[in-house]
């Protein structure tokens, strides 16, 4: 039963003005798989992720989730979907952001409930139950009534994760979710992600936490200079270092800063 990929990205291109950020990216993620994207800053990792839920419109190639083209009715260059259609499509994916992006006027519970109520159209009671369940799962059952401003960075990010997974997305997109955190708060967030991974949540993760990428993901994709430069299972990729100059210099810079 060779799995049909849940997410299939082919020959993806994206430019900002004259700056071509993505030059033909190919990437597949099957259901239940945890794929981590690593690579130097400015290499297009975040842009790639933001194309998957069409926060960025891509210029060429194709992105398909469950066989359905993202953002366009056909391929890139085809007709762009209408706003309501786009919204329905984005509800299939969940996203967690580097800067948390919790709604400042809503408490933890309400942040998680907003999508459940407005997008999933759940009745209030059910939405509340789901929200409390997920806040409990991320270890915040005692903070359900707190505003984002009353939470630490790590707690805010865990609410961010609860908000995304509560929607029961087909795939979860994590965009450098620990980059804005103090070092001592990184682990409480990564632990939650590890748990989701062991529950079988499909995830596409952009991160600078190489150690985490190595022990938590099924596959690591090294994106540099706008395309996939190397990919494979964590140990396969590490074996690749000998043949891949860019990967070697990227990882060496990392171990240099780790000391």
């Amino acid at each position: 039963m060779s799995a049909i990929p849940l997410l299939k990205i082919s020959r993806l291109t994206k430019s900002f003005g004259t700056n071509q950020v993505l030059k033909s990216v190919d990437l597949e993620v099957t259901a239940g798989e945890v794929v981590t994207v690593i690579g130097p800053s400015g290499g297009g990792k975040t842009t790639l992720l933001r194309c998957v839920n069409f926060l960025e419109a891509y210029d060429g190639g194709s992105i398909k989730i469950d066989g359905r083209e993202v953002g366009y009715t056909d391929n890139a260059g085809g007709k762009k979907r209408g706003e309501v259609d786009l919204a329905a499509m984005r509800a299939e994916t969940g996203m967690v952001f580097q800067s948390f992006n919790l709604f400042p006027h809503l408490n933890a519970e309400q942040n998680v409930m907003l999508g459940l109520r407005q997008v999933r159209k759940k009745p209030h009671k059910e939405a509340l139950e789901i929200a409390r369940h997920w806040l409990d799962r991320v270890g915040l059952s005692h903070k359900t009534g707190s505003l984002p401003s009353e939470l630490s960075g790590g707690q805010q990010q865990r609410v961010g994760i609860a908000r995304a997974v509560a929607m029961d997305p087909k795939i979860l997109l994590l965009d450098e979710i620990t980059s804005a955190l103090d070092p001592e708060l990184v682990n409480e967030v990564l632990d939650v992600v590890r748990q989701l991974a062991s529950d079988g949540m499909t995830m596409l993760i952009v991160t600078h936490e190489i150690a985490f990428a190595r022990d938590a993901s099924h596959r690591i994709v090294f994106v540099a200079d706008g395309s996939v430069s190397a990919q494979g299972k964590p140990d396969e990729l590490m074996a690749e270092v000998a043949n891949n100059e860019r990967l070697r210099s990227f990882l060496s810079r990392f171990s240099a800063t780790a000391h």
Binding site: L55, E83, A87, R90, A91, N101, F103, L114, G115, Q118
Partner: peptide
């Protein structure tokens, strides 16, 4: 209004009106 908040709204599938 911080752009990140609008992104968060988009990402969860809210329509422009919502």
């Amino acid at each position: 209004v911080p752009k990140g908040l609008l992104d968060a709204g988009k990402a969860m599938g809210l329509t422009p009106w919502q």
